[in-house]
Design a protein around this nucleic acid. Sequence first.
DNA 1: ATAGGCATGTAAGCAGTTACATGATTTA
DNA 2: TAAATCATGTAACTGCTTACATGCCTAT
Lengths: 195, 195
Amino acid sequence: MALRHAVLAALLDGEYSGYQLTKIFDVGVANFWYAAPQQLYAELAKLEADGLVAGREVVQHGRPNKRVFTVTEAGIAELAAFAATPAKPLLIREDLAVKVHAVDVLDPEPVIAQLLERAEQAAAKLALFEKILLRLRGDLDEETFLREGERIGPYLSCLAGCRLERQMREWCLQTARTLGRRTAPTGAPTGRTSP
Amino acid sequence: MALRHAVLAALLDGEYSGYQLTKIFDVGVANFWYAAPQQLYAELAKLEADGLVAGREVVQHGRPNKRVFTVTEAGIAELAAFAATPAKPLLIREDLAVKVHAVDVLDPEPVIAQLLERAEQAAAKLALFEKILLRLRGDLDEETFLREGERIGPYLSCLAGCRLERQMREWCLQTARTLGRRTAPTGAPTGRTSP
DNA sequence: ATAGGCATGTAAGCAGTTACATGATTTA
DNA sequence: TAAATCATGTAACTGCTTACATGCCTAT
């Protein structure tokens, strides 16, 4: 049971409703945990029942009311216990890499198309993360902020997201180029050995 | 249902038994899919029942016999259909990043220790992957191999593993350093503001 | 009007994890 | 003689995904 810790960590950034959390978690690399909306509503209910978060009704005009949640002291204690526990290894599951692994016996065209699409998504996420970094560090430069800032956890985990997306983008582009060169020596003669 | 595709892709590299696959999959980033041993035995049974792989008994002396599996033509067709289907987004779940995200309200010591340990694991995996790359490309240099090699899929997916582990190592070290500087201004006076 | 965003859930089914079970052989 | 490696599973449980359900408000 580790989704609960990801939810608790996310709620340290502020009061959020279930719906707001779904937005944060379906960016996926929010805090390196993906979760479906239904999981979040269920988990929040459990966390509240266990006294790890406290809900508060927020009345809104013009849109449905919502319940926002805060981490309780018991919730902080739960996080502390979690942090002191040995970390589980990274869990990663990536369709696209499986397809690339098998590409030699397959039609490479759809794989190349997916690599290019993924590269664009990675670039978009990277841009988003860099905006978040800017917002978090305010008017300080990164080094000063990391030395003296009050709350650097979200910044540090966002830095990991940047690294990941940057590598993802580069790998996708490099791989697409490599595959493209092998399949389509189309257009002007290139002086390479003909088939 | 995507574990089956990861298993099929892994079996393109050669005939493997269930036990051998467990070794490949618990390296984790084998082809970007982690799976527990029990999953693999179950999945192989299903794949064989569906005619996507074929099993063959290998008699051994001095150790238990084993059954090794090969991908059938139907298996290749299944992989082809999978490759043509839009890829699901990357699934990533990382305890350690969650802990870092929450580090401001926690004792940073155990988190730093885990970051350093993870950095070492990443370095070890990186070294392993680089050996695999060498083995795959034989006596060719990378560029030539990627242009002219016969089977480049495993090489390309292993390159992704290298990128990932390299970033992981650097992020862990950078993050541990940052956290360490903030908590322990021990030793010689540094001129910084005292607590 | 219709699509999209806000807001919260239930229910069924499948996938993944943890614990248990067995047994032979090689290495320390 | 104990521990590690090879080799293959079963069973119970938990967690995750997919599909369904509802309803209001805003923008096009």
